[in-house]
Design a protein around this nucleic acid. Structure first.
Length: 105
DNA sequence: CACATGACCTAAC
DNA sequence: TGTTAGGCCATGT
């Protein structure tokens, strides 16, 4: 079994577990798009479902769902504390430059 | 089972 | 750059 403490996900659907398992492996200070996560779990067309799984994340700050942004570089949304604003603050505190991530849109 | 919802993506205008 | 429209998918009712 994997060496992460979240392997014992006792709740959520199988799909959500797949997503969350990928999320906790995003390095500090880095970001990943919803689509990227979808591809990593073997469902390249489930980007939308991935977003749903994130919003259903019960382990709020433990699982770095705030490091997941849209493919075009925009923030997207956030159900955690502070809403989208809180998400931005978290990323900036990790040294993420959101401007450089915007695909010039 | 059918329908509605949402932290999405891409293309077209 | 902003908006519209169509497509995708897992979930909840």
């Amino acid at each position: 079994m994997p060496n992460n403490k979240f392997d014992s996900f006792s709740i959520g659907t199988e799909f959500q577990k797949l997503v969350w398992r990928e999320l906790i492996e995003i390095p500090y200070g880095e970001t990943r798009s919803y689509k990227e996560i979808a591809e990593l779990i073997g469902r390249p067309n489930s980007s939308r479902a991935v977003a749903s799984a994130c919003s259903s994340n019960p382990y709020a700050p433990e699982i770095p769902c705030h490091r997941v942004i849209r493919s075009d570089g925009k923030i997207g949304g956030y159900s955690g504390p502070g809403g989208v604003f809180g998400k931005i603050k978290l990323l900036e505190s990790e040294g993420v430059n959101l401007d450089s991530r915007r695909n010039q849109k």
